[in-house]
Design a protein around this nucleic acid. Structure first.
Lengths: 196, 196
DNA sequence: AAAAACACTTGACGATAATCAAGAAAAACA
DNA sequence: TGTTTTTCTTGATTATCGTCAAGTGTTTTT
């Protein structure tokens, strides 16, 4: 089974979590996707450029990061397959992206252009519904992320990550994790030694 | 001009920012709205109950808050008219809400039930498109909120609020603002005295 | 394999904010 | 209007985290 076929199966499964797309509609959707290969550390979306594609991550995981005015790097999110990713703000507004999205391992990724997606929205109400449902889910995830910041200490959030994604934590450099948790690498190192 | 008429004009204007709804479609939308009066400090959405209505705020402003496991209250957001508000997570999933939404002044508010909105989505693709666009905007706002946390100090965020919404800041009790900024009331008081 | 670059840990110190506590100012109420 | 309650300010103390710096361990490069 080829890479792209595996990805398509995962995409079909993912979509079916949200709504029942009949075969012709799914084919219409699929016909507009391309497959791309990304290497470890390569950027899927780059700061300063318009994110003109929506990506479907069927495997692997990515890191969202950006630079503060003072030049320091901030990891704002990790995303684990499967799911759609891009710089949504850039994609929706078609304005230059603030964030970078970086692959944390080699992976093949499906993607569709903004133009093609808008055409699909115009012609296939079911696909527009999928867009609405995915946007709603993206909002829910974002709100959850925000609440975890407001409610939980860096230590709580670290322990949660360890429990939820143990296989990934091992592969994420501590400095990225620290930034994601909103502390310095030194502080995270101390959290680790405390909670061993 | 009656209160409800003013609200409808504001709603029509607001919707037209996102897409052109022709008169019959707008009438279909409007036919499903009710108008409610809320007093200062009254709750529009209550923790523990399912948010089964979407509200359109044509005037005034509201506070989002919830309680941490330790019992302390956290103000997670303020929202200023015009716009649609509800506990989106609760509304979308039709599960009990974590957050409370509290009116900060007396106001009349339009609202539509979850059931009616879903019916409109099923029957009017343009209204479903409006739903998609509003969800996208809600996501963008949420991401912006998250980034302001990651990038800016409480002092920066306070000064930004003062610049952006000076007329409201005056009316928001300091303790709510402090919690929103993620600091204690004492610290915000000191920020204020520093930056006068 | 040696050298260099990078990632992580640990300690000392200083900055910042939380906590505790008291009092002043403002708002709500009788 | 005077009283009570709530909100805000200010000071002293404590705890936490960031910064700086040194040193260890690990990976990458030549």
């Amino acid at each position: 089974m080829k890479n792209i076929d595996k990805s398509i199966v995962i995409l079909r499964n993912f979509v079916s979590r949200f709504l029942a797309l009949d075969a012709p509609d799914f084919e219409k959707l699929l016909a507009n996707f391309e497959i791309d290969e990304f290497k470890r550390k390569e950027l899927i979306v780059e700061n300063g450029k318009v994110a003109d594609r929506m990506y479907f991550l069927s495997e692997g995981f990515v890191r969202f990061y950006h630079f503060k005015p003072d030049g320091s790097e901030v990891t704002s999110d990790f995303y684990f397959a499967p799911g759609f990713i891009t710089s949504f703000t850039s994609f929706i507004l078609q304005k230059p992206s603030i964030v970078n999205i970086q692959c944390l391992e080699q992976m093949s990724v499906l993607s569709i252009s903004h133009k093609k997606l808008i055409e699909l929205y115009d012609n296939y109400p079911k696909i527009e519904r999928l867009g609405r449902l995915l946007s709603e889910q993206a909002f829910i995830a974002s709100e959850k992320h925000l609440l975890s910041f407001l409610n939980d200490s860096p230590q709580d959030r670290y322990l949660w990550l360890c429990k939820e994604y143990p296989e990934y934590i091992k592969n994420i450099p501590l400095q990225y994790l620290a930034s994601y948790l909103g502390v310095t690498p030194e502080t995270l190192s101390r959290i680790r030694s405390r909670t061993l």
